[in-house]
Design a protein around this nucleic acid. Sequence first.
DNA 1: CGTTCAATTGATCAGCGTCAAACTAGGTGG
DNA 2: CCACCTAGTTTGACGCTGATCAATTGAACG
Lengths: 232, 232
Amino acid sequence: MRNTDIPAIRTLPLFKEMADGSFAELVRGAYVQTFPQNMELILEGDPCDFLHIVVDGSVELLANWGGRETTMTILREGATFILAAAIRDAPNLMSARTLERTRVIMLPAEDVRQVFEIDHAFARAVVMELAYCYRGVIKSVKGLKLRTSIERLANYLLKWQKKTGGNATFTLTIEKRRLASVLGMTPENLSRAIKSLRPYGVSIDGQVVEISKPDDLKRLAKPTPLIDDPRS
Amino acid sequence: MRNTDIPAIRTLPLFKEMADGSFAELVRGAYVQTFPQNMELILEGDPCDFLHIVVDGSVELLANWGGRETTMTILREGATFILAAAIRDAPNLMSARTLERTRVIMLPAEDVRQVFEIDHAFARAVVMELAYCYRGVIKSVKGLKLRTSIERLANYLLKWQKKTGGNATFTLTIEKRRLASVLGMTPENLSRAIKSLRPYGVSIDGQVVEISKPDDLKRLAKPTPLIDDPRS
DNA sequence: CGTTCAATTGATCAGCGTCAAACTAGGTGG
DNA sequence: CCACCTAGTTTGACGCTGATCAATTGAACG
């Protein structure tokens, strides 16, 4: 592992509080690698050998069944994945694929489990991270079961607007067909959903979104922290 | 807390390995209560004060939004709930309601966090439990996004058959309208879905299910451990 | 025996997926 | 610099899945 990558992850919540010695042990067996776009990092069903951390770029977590495929979520800089499988030493429930040139750190799952035993601060961070992920998935189930696809889109736009600083105009960093899959619809339907938000002040040109009547959109989207707030 | 309830939970995976002293501390501030049917135990959005454990009976976890309601899951004897919220000291993402006369143990969330700091075996058990829950929710998202409602029903029946011992005839322990909500459909649609499984050897009379052509049903359901296996 | 609530059935409709085709933009090579 | 290729996006037409509404049947309980 290159020295330059160590500080990059040392400050992540998962590693910030742990002892230097434990961190060193964790990092000793780590691999760092930069993958090209569209690289399959892990495959659904395979045993989980490494905890992965995105240093730079973005990764798609996806699932397949019966010839169908869906994007579960998209991860960016600082996100970890396959933590639950690594902890339980269980097969991966999702595949992972790079969406662009992406730098990833891989910590042997065995080391993670071992350091978990030794370092209490790390154990606490792992639990916090897992609980955070769990709540994230619960929110997405709520969105899928309680909202229509248009409502999901509206809330996605509002959430992304907030994340990018709150301006009326902002830019998506995700292909539309993938956004469609994340939101649980087809690309064709996303196109139509976008058009149907026009009366609510939404216009999308390429990756550029403009929300001209945020209050109208919010009245439709009815966002709630219990589904849409990424933290807490 | 009555003495008779202590052994009931001591053997649960969450508490089995922990030190006697830690367990005593956890149990010291615990409440045990038997609730009647249809009691609201916790409310979505409320702060999380207690980790709950079902000793006997069953509890429905549900979520509301925009006047709609959905059943997230149904918990039975031995299940814990609100663990993630208790750990993170965050508001509940789901409400909980008894489905029948149900006995519940409530451990103050503050105590749980504190014992987590002290007892390492407990910390490990918490992580295992959380990872288990996380994977459960991931599986349900996969089912919702990748399967039609008929496929979800078919897999539910096969899973429940296995859970009850594998006989061709077995009994559901859940109201149909709740099953419908768990599976993400309306009661009317569940009725029709059941009828449409008749050519695959499924007949349901009241709560009694018979699967006469399991191979045909499996060919339709295409069950996979990566969605349908509750363990691992 | 009547009340109540769940389950079923039928009719209708909206949402969304599928298929096919047109359009667009970004990248490549002549 | 332009023509072309490729892949993503959009549009239209159509059909299936599943929701809604309304009415009926059935079962549990007082």
